[in-house]
Each structure stands twice: as structure tokens, then as C-alpha cells.
Computed example of a mutant assay.
Amino acid sequence: MIYLLRHGQTDYNREGRLQGQTESQLTELGMAQVQAMADLLKGEIGDEPGWRIAASPLKRTRQSAAIVAQTLGLEVEIEPLLIEVGCGVWENQLYDDLRAAYPKDFTGPGWCFRSPDGERFEHVDDRVRAWLRALPPEGERKVIAVAHGISGSLLRGAYLGLSSQLTLIQDTPQDAIFRLTEGRVDRLACRPVLAA
């Protein structure tokens, strides 16, 4: 079984700024969102042994994984294959500015793969599929993956065997966990967290 969660809200999320592989830290709301996810996970797996946490190496996912690890009494393993898509020169820019500068490219599903020097869908897809292939067989998997909006969508798409189009229209919540087991992906909603 895999429990997949996205990091909580970051400074860049709040500002409407594209992160990609640049660093941004969790806001207070983001930390509260992750704590809600950690509490939900605690209710799901309790003290069952054998679980591990794999997190993207970026700061926002490491911060999120640390909150989950503290709640569950686990250690965090850094997993480079879960890192977010690299968006090249688009990173650090405001979404509104990108929409104005790239009206044809910065729209619709898959926009994050259209930056002039960013990663392409196939590269990120290959990464997350390699991570899935390296896991124990389905019945022996006990992993919590802390990833990102896009890499998490591609991970779910790869697990379900979705087309690229269906993969790219999945939602990317910061207040829910996805449980991947027996060929299904179930969304588990967390308790509501309000902005301060």
C-alpha cells in the first residue's frame, strides 16, 4: 500500500508563484495542513510496524515529511525520483506574469511541461515509474510518499495506467491523502484546516 500526500501550503503557493524545483518553505497554514494529514495517517495505520516515509528532496516536502515522521514515529528517507517537475526559466515567477507572457503555453492541462527549458512529461513519468518499479510487490508495500502536485499526479497516473491527458487533469489537494492499493486510488479527506 502507498499513502501519497502533497506538501502543505508554501510561501510560493500563497503568493501565486511557480515553484518547480526551487525552494520555498511551509506557511503556518501549510504546517497545519500537514499535521491534519499526519493525524489521518495515524488513524489509518496506527502503530503497525514496517512503514517507511519517502520524501522528495525539496525543502517543502522534507518539512512536510518531518511532521508526518514525528507523528508516526518514523524516519524519513529522501527520494530524488519524487522531486517536482523542473520548470526552467518559469520558476520563481508569478502565475499571472507567466499567463501574460506565454498565453498559448501557460494554459490547460500540461502547461507545466511547456516551459522553454523545463522537464518534459516523459522524463518525470519515467522517474515516478522507476520509483514504483523499485518498491516491494503490491501486498508487501508499506510506504508513505511525500511529493508534489505534478509529480504526485504522474505517480497516481502511472499506478492506474492512465493516459497522459487523464493524468494531467487530476486534482492536487493539500488537504487530502491518496491511498494506492489493489489497483485503486482512493482519496481520503483530512479534517478541515482554516487559514489564520
Rank of each mutant, 00 (worst) to 15 (best):
Q19N: 03
I144D: 07
I83R: 01
P57M: 01
Q19T: 04
R14Y: 13
R156D: 02
S24M: 05
A55Y: 06
G50F: 10
A189Y: 09
V193S: 09
L188S: 03
K104A: 15
S153A: 14
R191I: 14
S164C: 11
P116V: 14
R17L: 02
W111Y: 15
I2Y: 05
A65D: 11
D105W: 08
D97R: 05
Q165Y: 11
A36Q: 15
R187P: 05
L29R: 15
E28C: 14
L168Q: 11
S115E: 05
A54D: 13
L74C: 03
A147I: 00
G161D: 14
W90P: 04
G110P: 10
A145L: 02
L168T: 07
Y95D: 09
L135A: 05
D175P: 07
W131R: 00
Y12R: 02
P192F: 09
V76T: 04
L29A: 14
G110W: 07
K59T: 12
P103S: 08
G161A: 04
I53P: 08
C190A: 15
V193K: 14
G118V: 06
T27E: 10
E182R: 04
V85Y: 00
E75K: 10
G86W: 03
G88T: 08
Q25L: 15
R129D: 00
L155Q: 03
P49T: 11
C87Q: 09
E79I: 01
Q170Y: 06
A176V: 04
Q165I: 08
W131L: 00
E23R: 04
L94I: 04
A189H: 12
Q165K: 13
T167S: 06
F121L: 10
G46F: 05
R191F: 11
T71A: 05
D47C: 07
D171I: 10
T181F: 09
S164P: 13
P57N: 02
A32V: 14
A69K: 06
I67H: 04
L41C: 13
L188N: 06
A196F: 13
E44C: 11
F113W: 02
A54L: 07
S151P: 06
G86F: 01
G157R: 01
S163H: 09
R120Q: 15
A32C: 15
V128F: 01
P173C: 03
W51S: 06
Q165H: 10
T22L: 05
M31T: 13
